[in-house]
Design a protein around this nucleic acid. Structure first.
Lengths: 156, 156
DNA sequence: ACCTTTTCCCACTTTTACCCACCATACTAG
DNA sequence: CTAGTATGGTGGGTAAAAGTGGGAAAAGGT
């Protein structure tokens, strides 16, 4: 089962966020029985947003990351950014998570937040950043000339 | 279990640092029962930051380092730098460590410090150095052209 | 013997975890 | 149709835990 769809949520004054049930259930599904659903949240290196994975999915990724040759500068860079920001989080009794201050800062979130289901993961955006970014995406998209060949082959 | 995630801590006037619980627990896990968790701290030869290992992990690394051909100048250099700076440290009763003056100097830390979980080890950065370095990393990363092939294959 | 560094201990502040209460919506049953 | 009842999202109080700072004793070096 995969994440999809968007949801808006509010952070409270303490930086907590309620995980919408639609997503929450997927985390519960992926967690060992009788254990609190665990998830890992890290940064997206290309956008000012955060990525939220079920622990199981993240472990696969971290394993791949650690196998990269550590004398390769680009690999070290990615490891520092992704693993270095990846934080373990548990859903509390009321289905909320506390976003670490460092990550809140990175994604420039204060209150209004958008969650975007994206298959294996959820993306977390500051609402204002997202709506701006969405505009530019739509613009870029209508400019069909610049779509690479492999997109033209997609039949929706 | 592996180190991951970022944490900010302050050194006090004596150069002591509280190891965040999240990391501390992993050190305790890796230490023999009923003994104070021991760790080894040394320098990173490519960046102005420090590397902190559980003693067990460091021993493996030091062994590998010592097996390097000692007539090879580059190997001698690495041995001198890494083994030469490696310092044994214990977590005290309140979970703090005292950073040796030499290493504090090397990493240019005074007060604000960032810890980055990096798998087998933790990296310790001066906060200002890290945020500058992180910026350049993010820049380099968005410049997708120059990412080596093996990174492009990663599906996050 | 003196000075510096380290260790141990205690006190304070901030952050986090846990709990409960409230409101809006949607659904159920009379 | 309406009252009652779940359910999801939100807000906030409080106690425990984590992090911070500093005094003073102990250890170590010169």
């Amino acid at each position: 089962m995969m994440f999809r769809g968007a949801a808006t949520v509010n952070l409270d004054a303490k930086g907590r966020m309620a995980m919408p049930v639609r997503f929450r259930d997927l985390f519960i599904e992926k967690a060992p029985i009788d254990a609190n659903p665990q998830l890992v949240i890290t940064i997206d290196t290309e956008e000012s947003c955060l990525l939220i994975y079920p622990l199981v999915e993240w472990n696969i990724i971290q394993q791949k990351l650690e196998q990269l040759p550590s004398f390769n500068p680009a690999a070290r860079r990615i490891q520092r950014l992704l693993i270095g920001h990846a934080t373990d989080i548990e859903l509390d009794a009321s289905g909320r998570i506390l976003l670490p201050a460092v990550l809140r800062e990175y994604a420039q979130v204060d209150k209004k937040v958008i969650l975007l289901g994206q298959g294996k993961k959820i993306e977390l955006w500051s609402e204002s950043l997202w709506s701006a970014r969405r505009e530019t995406y739509l613009q870029a998209n209508s400019n069909t000339e610049e779509l690479p060949e492999l997109l033209h082959q997609l039949s929706l």
